[in-house]
Write a protein that binds this DNA or RNA. Structure first.
Lengths: 253, 253
DNA sequence: CGCGCCCTTGACTGAGTTCAACGGACGTGG
DNA sequence: CCACGTCCGTTGAACTCAGTCAAGGGCGCG
């Protein structure tokens, strides 16, 4: 029996889901929700995961006010989340990449508090929250890691508060680049060479700056020889300097 | 047998803890972690809660880098939390009051990421996190509410990001006052008349403004007849207007 | 080719900071 | 009880960083 035949003979429920869609086969499982689970537990998690959904670039994963039923684990691609205040202006609250969890802010009110939008064609795993809660009682490891992920989100947001509340423009931008760099590094990508998936405007909004300021900062950093930019392609030539600027140890002047 | 005698005759373990220290007898139990629990479950939660600790004004509940063992529920008083960045400047990340939970940002790394400091003489319940996790398996209601509280913290921080990223000074300050007002209201206190427990400097730091700006804003709002101020005593004379300013529907000009 | 979107750059503006001086509340000690 | 120092807050004047406004460039796509 060939491998192809073996695949064909699997029951329909298995065939309808690609093998690569299982947590254990996903390249993100060391970072994502199933981190640290044994094979057996990972399978149980797999069983509750609803669908793997494709989200086209610029389309919404969810919107403010949508009822909360699922968390979403990003398998592939990038997202942004933004809030809208009563007078209509937006604040980008984060950029998320593969292995990160979306929707945790909706647990408290069972409604989403922000919009989540794909920055490129992306793929997510739908995790029905009530079923996930059902697993927690029997899988303390899963629960513990879930708490770590929520806690990490709190920590992340606190550091953005520090950024928005205390830092000057160039410090903010250096911190932003440094943050992206380390997150790509964790995922096994280059920490010095990557693409910006978001527009200058989205970066500016996230950092509490205008698009013009971001543009000027890119030019300034380029002139200093700290980075190389061409459209959305970015190379960090002086990552150590950038880290120092982000930390406030060094300035641009 | 008199009541006094009855108290004396109670076993030492009971005597060492005041009756009012039990969750079911605490005025915050409708807001705090035990929200919605039945008497029996509340007792179980009580049993794992370590101590009720008094924290003197200006002293630390925990510091950045302290190992994480407990969450803290505020029974009485007010706290602030702040982060410190590498170059030494601080960012106040929140002001907490009775019924709120402190320390959730430490779960991810098992180290505290910020300092928590009492703004006045306060009291907290020490909740050993590992024992709390032990209860989760058997008390899904408790777990669910814990998730709601973490999620609420994420939401709260997102709205601060919106504030710091998008709002003008007067809008920030109006949002701050409105937020305090509604939190006091939930706790059964006056929503229009309360004391500021923090200095102008702490408010400014939290809102990404200087102490001078806060002082000027107080004067401005007073001149407009929106508030009455005398040192730390505050009265909101036009709460509706303040809400509108916070929402960006109305300006001060 | 032409249109739209995204980005860059320059000149000017202004909200909020910085600097500085002062005032008032509170606690301590003579 | 007053003198003194400290901490906290207020107010004014000058400055500055980032925003606003405006014009133009470059790239992709129909």
């Amino acid at each position: 029996m060939t491998q192809a035949q073996a695949l064909v003979r699997q029951p329909a429920t298995s065939r309808s889901r690609e093998i690569s869609a299982r947590c254990s086969a996903c390249s993100m499982h060391q970072i994502c929700l199933p981190m640290g689970l044994e094979e057996k537990d990972m399978d149980r998690l797999d069983q509750i995961i609803g669908r793997r959904r494709k989200i086209a670039r610029d389309s919404h994963l969810y919107r403010v006010g949508d009822p909360f039923t699922n968390l979403y684990a990003i398998r592939l691609g990038h997202f942004k989340t933004h809030q809208v205040n009563p007078s209509g202006d937006q604040q980008v609250t984060g950029f998320q990449m593969a292995g990160e969890l979306l929707g945790m802010d909706a647990i408290s009110t069972e409604r989403h508090h922000c919009d989540a939008i794909a920055l490129e064609d992306s793929e997510v795993c739908e995790i029905p929250f009530s079923r996930l809660e059902g697993l927690f009682g029997e899988m303390p490891q899963l629960l513990h890691h879930f708490h770590r992920m929520m806690s990490q989100e709190i920590t992340r947001e606190q550091s953005v508060m520090l950024l928005l509340g205390n830092m000057r423009a160039e410090q903010r931008f250096a911190a932003f680049l440094t943050n992206l760099s380390s997150r790509y590094s964790i995922r096994g990508y280059s920490s010095t060479s990557f693409q910006l998936r978001m527009t200058r405007e989205e970066i500016g909004n996230y950092l509490g700056l205008t698009i013009e300021s971001i543009s000027r900062l890119l030019s300034k950093f380029k002139k200093r020889g700290w980075i190389k930019v061409s459209n959305r392609d970015l190379e960090l030539l002086e990552p150590v300097t950038l880290k120092a600027v982000a930390a406030g140890t060094q300035t641009c002047a």
